[in-house]
Write a protein that binds this DNA or RNA. Structure first.
Length: 447
RNA sequence: GGCCCUAUCGUCUAACGGUUAGGACGAAAGCUUUUCAAGCUUUAAACCGGGGUUCGAUUCCCCGUAGGGUCACCA
């Protein structure tokens, strides 16, 4: 049995986006699960539109995701091979140099055309079955501008042939390219690879995925704080499933479970909410150190300084922050909105905010806080945990009315409408700051 | 327009002739220590339409309809 060889062959005319990632992933998976070879081939025969920065972006994206390739090629390095094949085909009479009037400005007076045998080509697609095209309408199509400038269709066929590609896995926008590539293959005497055309991934409005519709470059997802595991898991599920209800699938599991024939026939719509859900799942699996690092780099400089000078507090804050976000990038906006400041600095607030909605009496609120103070002041600093604090206060709160006790306490500690619960807060802040903030609140209420 | 492809909840999907059409995201409701988040429980939500084939069609066939792809000296 011949070794499986797949390839991912992007043209560097744009960034690596979600759709391409899925194509790359499926090709990669298929090669890996068959102990085959995965080739990355940059198709830059269009010198005008190909850009090095896009090539870099594609390579960076794939590396970040861990979709490593076994071999790398760049078509612009391979003109000699194409030239050789053109000459060979001319000798065979399958291709000819055509002298003609340029149809467009900038067109050439001489191009190289393929002599179309004008017949029906049928090929088997792994996900769609037999597909037939009458190639007559293609005419004698151009395969190269000149001997040194091959066009896409020709370069693809020559490369797949020479690189021994056994399985072509690509987007279904290439489906109508297939017949003419088969024609070239046959002229070359090349074996026909097994074709698998993947359905498109659409934007939420069902239009073609584009940057305007929230489809970012993979590198941008990286910057926003998405995890590679989440991206991979997400794209794997767009167009494929393991055959059961499993939704969380690691790359290693995919290698075992993936099957080409189970790939979906119809297009899928990109669903950012599901991606976020997956990302949150994978974020929870991160080590505290790693999560802390991701969060810290997204703090504004001032907050970073505070976090550095109060590492103990920051370490306790990390899981709390993690609990409220789906993507690390959210930290930036939250921090700027003042969501985290109170962890490190006593908050300022209007005193009436301390009042519970069902008990708007400053003196009563002050009384409650005073009682809390008395209940926690004797807890040993070393045992100032959410559990002990809760135990100390709980019975009293239940008796006096939880809202009337816990709301002022929480507000005194955070100065915010929304925050973690007061016991967690007290633990994060530490005993000293907790006592100080509650005392301050009492003063405000009595003023 | 020609050619090609596709069609199950809002979205991702399961079902491979017989099911109360299942799961997940999202949504709604409830519970969970006062707020928020998380978590748990529950609910609403789909077979594009019409013909066949068959004892029986979401499933097979045909025709519509809708959507997408492609028709370069781009890839």
């Amino acid at each position: 049995m011949t070794k499986v060889i797949t390839r991912f062959a992007p043209s560097p005319t744009g960034v690596l986006h979600i759709g391409s990632v899925r194509t790359a992933l499926y090709s990669w998976l298929y090669a890996r699960q068959n102990n085959g070879k995965f080739i990355l081939r940059i198709e830059d025969t269009d010198k005008e539109r190909s850009k090095k920065e896009f090539e870099d972006n594609i390579i960076d994206g794939l590396n970040w995701l861990g979709l490593t390739h076994d071999e790398f090629f760049r078509q612009s390095d391979r003109s000699v091979f194409y030239k050789e094949k053109i000459i060979e085909l001319i000798a065979k009479g399958a291709v000819y140099v055509s002298k003609e009037e340029p149809k467009e400005p900038g067109g050439r007076a001489e191009v190289i055309r393929f002599k179309n045998p004008n017949r029906v080509v049928t090929f088997e697609d792994v996900v769609r079955g037999d597909i037939s095209f009458d190639t007559t309408e293609l005419g004698d199509f151009v395969i190269a501008k000149d001997f040194d400038t091959p066009l896409y269709h020709f370069a693809v066929v020559v490369d797949d042939f020479e690189m021994g590609v056994t399985h072509v896995i690509r987007g279904d926008d290439a489906i109508s390219n297939t017949p003419r590539q088969i024609l070239i293959q046959e002229a070359l005497g090349a074996p026909r690879p097994i074709y698998t055309h993947l359905p498109m991934i659409l934007a939420p409005d069902k239009s073609k995925l584009s940057k305007r519709h929230g489809a970012l470059a993979v590198t941008e997802y990286h910057e926003e704080g998405y995890l590679p595991e989440a991206i991979l898991n997400f794209v794997a599920l767009m167009g494929w499933n393991p055959g059961n209800d499993q939704e969380i699938i690691s790359l290693e599991e995919m290698v075992k479970l993936f099957t080409l024939p189970k790939v979906q026939k119809s297009a899928a719509v990109f669903n950012i909410d599901k991606l976020k859900w997956l990302n949150k799942h994978y974020m929870k699996l991160l080590s505290a150190d790693r999560a802390g690092e991701e969060i810290l780099t997204r703090f504004p400089p001032m907050l970073q300084t505070k976090a550095h000078s109060d590492v103990k507090v920051f370490e306790k804050v990390v899981p709390v922050i993690l609990d409220h976000i789906s993507v690390f990038g959210e930290v930036r906006a939250l921090a700027e909105a003042g969501e985290y400041g109170y962890f490190f600095e006593d908050p300022a607030y209007a005193p009436e905010k301390l009042l519970w909605k069902d008990e708007p009496e400053p003196m009563l609120a002050a009384e409650k806080l005073q009682k809390i103070l008395a209940l926690i002041v004797d807890i040993d600093n070393a045992f100032f945990t959410p559990e002990t604090i809760k135990t100390a206060i709980w019975d009293y709160a239940t008796e006096a009315g939880r809202g009337s006790v816990l709301w002022p306490m929480r507000y005194a500690l955070s100065g915010r409408e929304k925050s973690p619960d007061p016991f967690m807060l007290a633990n994060i802040l530490g005993k000293e700051a907790t006592l100080r903030r509650i005392t301050h609140a009492i003063e405000l209420l009595r003023a």
